[in-house]
Design a protein around this nucleic acid. Structure first.
Lengths: 345, 345
DNA sequence: TTGTTTTACTAAAACGTTTTAGTATATTTG
DNA sequence: CAAATATACTAAAACGTTTTAGTAAAACAA
C-alpha cells in the first residue's frame, strides 16, 4: 500500500505542494494562508493518513534527526539505564537514538563512530569511550562535529564531558568507613587501567586516609586483572585479609570488581561485615539483594543522561563543537555491608 | 565541511554519476565497466572520503535500512541482553536498530509503533508487546508489514513469534524441586496478568505436581501486584510460610518477583534453602551472587534474538507478513537456593 | 560493405520534501 | 486614479541517490 505524500494531498485539494508543506509545518500563518485552507489541508492529511517521509525531509534539510550513542556494552545495567534516559530525552526533542556497543574494543568503537557519522549521518554523538588517544575525536572536533563524552574522560582532550566527582565520591565513602571505626581500609583496583575515573577514586581514597590521620600502607591496594578476574580477585582478597595485612574493610573500585570480591570473600568463609566490610563504587539494583546488601557510591545516572543530551543539543543547535564539563555529585548509599546498620543498633 | 557526493566523484573523473554509482554498488561487472575505470572510481571515492548518503538512497529505494525494537524497558537486563544481540545481528546485515521502551503502557507502545513505522519508516518491527488486543497488529498484518513478537504472545493472533517453552521450563523446575525432596511447593504469581507466558508457567507447575502424585493445594498459589510490590510480596511470602500452609519451596514466576521474595524471606529471618527453597523463572547475572545464589530457569536470550532477526529478515526480504512460531527450550540452572548442593553433599 | 551485436558507457527521471523567488488579485494609500 | 502594499497563494529547484532507457563506437557476421 503506497503512502500518501504531499503531492497526493495537494492534488486532492487542487492546491500546491508548497502550501500543504507550509500548513503541515505550522508555517501557514506567517505565510498568510487562510484558516479555511489550513483546515482543509489538515483534514485531508488526516484522511489520507499522511506522515512526512523523514528520508526526503532529511535529504532536503540535511538533518537526520538521529543521534548516536556508543557505549562499551548496552547490556551492562549502568549503560542500559543511561541509554534509557537518553532515549527518553531525545524523543521528547523529536530525535531518535541509535545505540551501539563497542565491547571495549578500540577498533570497534572507531568503526562504529564512522558508521554512525558517515553512513547514518547522525547529528551528534554521545560516547562512553574506550579509546586511549584522542586522534579520532580531534578529527571530529576540527569539523565541529557535536560530541559529548560521558563516564570516561580523555585526558588532555578538551570536549564536552559529563561525569561524576570520582575523587569526592571515594573520599566520602572512605571517610564513612573510618567513622564506622575502620582503621585499615583496603582497595581492590583494576590493572592495567587507563580510565581516569578509577585513578581519581584511588586518589580520593588516599586523601580520606590522610585527612583522618591514617598512615597509608601500600599493601592495602591490590589490583586485579580483567583477563583473569576470578583468580586475581581471590588472590587480592586473600592478601588483604591475611594476618600480615588484615584490613577491616575493602573498597572495590567498581561494581564488577565488587561482585567478584563478594564471591571471593564468601569462599573464604569470612562474614560481611562482621569479619570485613565490603563497599564499592557504582550502584546496581542487584546490590539491594546481594548478600549482604552492599553499601555503595551511587552515580546519578539519569542526571548524567540528561546533561549529556543538553550539552549535545546545544552543539547541534549552535552547529558548533563546545567544550564544557559537567561534574555531578555522587551519593553514598548505606546498606549493610559496611556494618553501619549493625553498629548503630 | 561539505561531504563528497557521487557528483563530485563523477566530475573529478569526467564520467557520469551513473557509472560511479554502479561501480560503488558493485554492479560494474554486470554492466561491463572496465577494470581500469572501476579502479579510478574507487580510488577517487577513497580520496574524497565518500560515503553514500543513506537518506538519499533511502528516498530513492524506499528502504530505510533501519529496523525497530520495542520492549517494555530497555534497562531491564532481560531486554538489554536481547537488544544487544539483535543490534549485533542486524548490523551484520547492514541494518541499524532503533530501540524504544514502552514502560508497559499500551498507549505508549501504540504511539511508538506508529512513530517507528510511519515517521521513521523502519522496515520491520520486533516487539515484546504490552498490548492486550491485536487491533494494531492486525492492521500491520493486513498491510503485510514485517513483524516479529518476542517473549510475549498475543493469544489468538497469528504472526511470527519467538519465545520459550514456558510450560516445560516450569515443569522441569518443579520436578527438580520434588526430586530434591520438596513436598509442598508454592508459587508467587503476578496479578492481574494477561501475559500468556506467566499462565503457561503456572500450568507447567500444576502438571509437574500432578505427574508426581502431589495433590495441588490452591493456597499454594499467591499473587502479588506490581503497583504495591513490596507489601503484596511480603504478604504472599508470609502466607506461604505460615504454619497453616507451610511450603518447603517457593517458585517465583519471574525475576522481578524473585527479588522481592528474596527480600521478604530475609526479613522474616528464614534461611534459604534450609527453611525454604526459592527458585525462579528467568535468570539474571545478579542471581549468581545473590544470597544465596538462585536456582533458575534460564531463557536462551541470544537465540531468541537471533531467531527474531532471522524471522524478521525473511519477511523483509520476501515483502510478506509471515506466521511462524519458534519455541525454544529453557535451561535449568541449579545453584544453591533450591538446596540441591546441600543435600547432595 | 552492410547490418548486427557487444562493449562501455551516459542522460534524465524519480523518490518526497523544503525553500526561494516569484505572481495574480485585492486592498490601501497619496 | 495610479501606485504601492498586502493577501493568498504557486512554480520550480534542490538535496543525492538508483534505475531505466538509451547511445556512440568498436567488433563481429553475412
Amino acid at each position: 500500500m503506497k503512502r500518501a505524500s504531499l503531492k497526493d494531498i495537494a492534488e486532492a485539494l487542487n492546491v500546491s505542494k508548497t502550501l500543504v508543506s507550509l500548513v503541515l509545518n505550522n508555517k501557514a500563518n506567517e505565510w498568510g494562508i487562510s484558516e479555511e485552507t489550513q483546515k482543509k489541508v489538515r483534514k485531508k492529511a488526516e484522511e489520507l493518513n499522511y506522515y512526512p517521509n523523514q528520508m526526503a525531509r532529511g535529504l532536503r534539510t540535511g538533518k537526520s534527526n538521529i543521534i548516536g550513542l556508543v557505549v562499551a556494552d548496552i547490556s551492562n545495567p549502568f549503560y542500559a539505564k543511561i541509554s534509557r534516559t537518553i532515549e527518553h530525552e531525545v524523543t521528547q526533542l523529536g530525535y531518535h537514538l541509535l545505540v551501539c556497543s563497542s565491547d571495549e574494543v578500540e577498533e570497534k568503537e572507531t568503526k562504529l563512530i564512522e558508521l554512525l557519522r558517515d553512513r547514518q549521518r547522525v547529528e551528534g554523538l554521545i560516547i562512553a569511550t574506550t579509546q586511549q588517544n584522542a586522534e579520532q575525536f580531534n578529527h571530529l572536533k576540527k569539523q565541529q562535529y557535536p560530541l559529548v563524552l560521558i563516564d570516561r574522560k580523555l585526558p588532555g582532550f578538551g570536549c564536552s564531558y559529563v561525569g561524576v566527582d570520582n575523587n569526592k565520591g571515594a573520599y566520602q565513602m572512605v571517610e564513612h568507613l573510618i567513622k564506622m571505626g575502620m582503621k585499615k581500609i583496603g582497595v581492590v583496583n583494576v590493572t592495567p587501567s587507563h580510565l581516569s575515573s578509577l585513578n581519581e577514586r584511588v586518589e580520593g581514597y588516599k586523601e580520606a586516609l590522610k585527612k583522618n590521620g591514617i598512615k597509608f600502607n601500600p599493601e592495602w591496594i591490590q589490583s586485579v586483572s580483567y583477563n583473569d578476574i576470578g583468580n586475581t580477585t581471590a588472590q587480592a582478597v586473600e592478601k588483604l585479609l591475611s594476618s600480615s595485612v588484615g584490613v577491616d574493610a575493602i573498597f572495590t573500585i567498581n561494581n564488577y570488581v565488587a561482585i567478584n570480591c563478594l564471591q571471593a570473600t564468601h569462599k573464604l568463609k569470612k562474614r560481611i561485615p562482621e569479619d570485613v566490610a565490603i563497599v564499592c563504587f557504582d550502584d546496581l539494583d542487584a546490590f539491594n539483594f546481594s548478600h549482604p546488601p552492599l553499601t555503595t557510591v551511587a552515580q546519578p545516572l539519569e542526571q548524567i543522561a540528561e546533561e549529556a543530551v543538553r550539552l549535545l543539543m546545544k552543539q547541534i543547535d549552535g552547529k558548533k563543537f563546545l567544550v564544557a564539563e559537567k561534574i555531578l555529585p555522587t551519593k553514598l548509599v548505606i546498606r549493610e555491608s559496611c556494618g553501619g546498620l549493625l553498629k548503630r543498633a
